[in-house]
Write a protein that binds this DNA or RNA. Structure first.
Ligand code: NAD
Ligand code: NAD
Lengths: 255, 255
DNA sequence: CCCGCTTTGTGCGTGCGTTCACAAGGACAT
DNA sequence: ATGTCCTTGTGAACGCACGCACAAAGCGGG
């Protein structure tokens, strides 16, 4: 009621919606490439692999950008979603860990495509420092804080071994980074206000395995995966309680 | 009421729970490595980064494996979760695409650690075929169907360019693979009964950017990201409708 | 100018997931 | 054997997300 604008009636966009906006955006880019000027919610939803009602509700959170009876103007919608996601500005990203994964990330074209710029690639290992990867020179991770401040890094990517992840995370945070993307198989501890997203290959595989097992189980009857051997330890109590304090510190390479 | 067993009262485990079981499993492995025999829901929850009530409810879906007043036997719980996830058996995985990412995946130790075995690494590019990566020889993707059948591959990983992803996916499916992990920035089309999980770096970054922008906006007042330029196209209608059929076919490198 | 067609934007019912809070259960000491 | 203490397992309340179904709105044709 306060503003006559047709934009966001409410600045609180549901998290589930935010996670889908990039998918819509990609589908829309595909449409512009093919010269399509306008798209209906039905068509766009199909391209994005979602329900059309869900798509419309998602878009309605940004404002009223469609035309009834016609659909959405592709270019305009791209602009609006991009702005909402913050892609109209440049984001400087620092990658720590120049191993297999870190180098693959640095070489990844899709990284740069939408407003994300790799500002630095850091590693602790001396033998890697100075090497050139994707037009970047690997810098020593001692420089982390300096690099973050000087190059206005706002997103940190952790591609180190699991052992180093929490330390790197802490340093990112103390340098002022409040958005972190973590590839190491560790639960990171961060203060309030810092966003962490994790990408965990091992977890994805395990989820797939679970469903795969289900499918197989259906064909073979119930209880087929119950081992003939008795469970390894009929939970027999022996020792007393052992206090566990720094549990989240010691996690080893991807289980 | 039918079975006296203390196991699954209900075989339907919530999807959200399944997604967390691997996290618990990892935390539990960390505990065994430190020789901890028993853990309370409070401690384990802290290690996994979740609410303890949620942890208990999650575990309760598998059965009643805790001891009141004491907690959970670590080894035993590891066994139960592993079995539920299907990790007590071996899963053969085939990776298609031996580019930067595919090679990083093949080299990834955490891949093999828990019952997952890389059965093949395939690529269409002749110059890559025959190369050795992580003890594997790259094979030509013509061999996909043969490899899947002969080596009992049940999980397919797609690490090709976006353009090739759907084709590879179709071939996986027709060869009988019903679980697919997709790294290409494409919405895959699969028949009922096939599970697809996607890992999309670009989406994760965009979600982070969204929240990062939010935080900055709070400090700078509302509407700060509204460009001074008028929106690129005051959605002015020109041409007529253009039918869009194969929308999901044409997607380009990660936007 | 009005009418019919198409598609948006959304109110509403439903179901899932999260969290609180507590009774029930088991271990250990006495 | 009994009491105390601790932790599990879960009932219940709440909130979010999804999808149906429809009224409102714009467009084009007559
Ligand atoms: N390779 C994959 O496909 C893959 C997939 C999923 C997850 N991961 C995870 O990503 C991480 C990296 O994987 P990778 O295959 O590149 O491993 P890697 O061993 O090849 O590379 C790790 C790099 O991080 C550096 N490093 C370690 N500690 C550091 C620190 N404190 N500061 C700065 N640099 C440090 C090392 O010097 C090394 O170069 C691992 O945690 C791994 O579990 C990898
Ligand atoms: N590199 C990254 O960090 C990263 C991150 C996220 C997503 N991705 C996505 O993962 C995919 C692979 O990335 P990359 O960096 O390894 O790219 P890349 O170009 O290095 O490798 C792609 C490989 O796939 C092969 N290929 C293409 N079409 C094929 C087909 N039909 N059958 C078999 N092989 C085929 C190519 O020959 C090439 O070797 C891309 O879709 C990319 O968008 C990459």
């Amino acid at each position: 009621m306060t503003r006559p604008s047709s934009r966001p009636r409410d600045r609180g966009i549901p998290e589930a919606t935010v996670a889908r906006l990039p998918v819509y955006l990609r589908a829309l880019h595909g449409l512009t490439d093919r010269g399509v000027p306008t798209v209906s919610s039905e068509e766009l939803a199909a391209a994005a692999g979602v329900n059309s009602a869900k798509l419309r509700k998602d878009l309605s959170h940004l404002g009223s950008y469609g035309t009834r009876g016609v659909g959405y103007d592709v270019e305009y919608l791209i602009y609006q979603i991009s702005r909402e996601l913050g892609l109209t500005q440049d984001w400087a990203v620092a990658i720590v860990g120049a191993g297999n994964l870190g180098r693959a990330l640095a070489n990844y074209g899709g990284f740069v495509s939408r407003g994300f710029r790799i500002a630095a690639l850091l590693d602790v290992q001396e033998s890697l420092v100075g090497a050139e990867v994707a037009g970047l020179r690997v810098e020593h991770s001692d420089q982390l804080e300096a690099v973050v401040r000087q190059r206005r890094v706002s997103i940190g990517v952790i591609a180190t071994s699991a052992a180093g992840a929490q330390t790197v995370c802490d340093r990112f945070v103390s340098a002022g980074v409040t958005s972190i993307l973590n590839f190491a198989p560790v639960v990171l501890n961060v203060p309030e206000g810092v966003d962490v997203r994790k990408v965990d290959l091992s977890i994805e595989l395990q989820i797939l395995a679970f469903h795969e097992q289900r499918k197989a189980a259906g064909a073979l009857g119930p209880d087929w995966n119950v081992s003939v051997e008795p469970p390894p330890a009929p939970p027999e109590r022996v020792g007393g309680r052992i206090p566990v304090d720094a549990v989240d510190a010691a996690e080893e390479e991807g289980r």
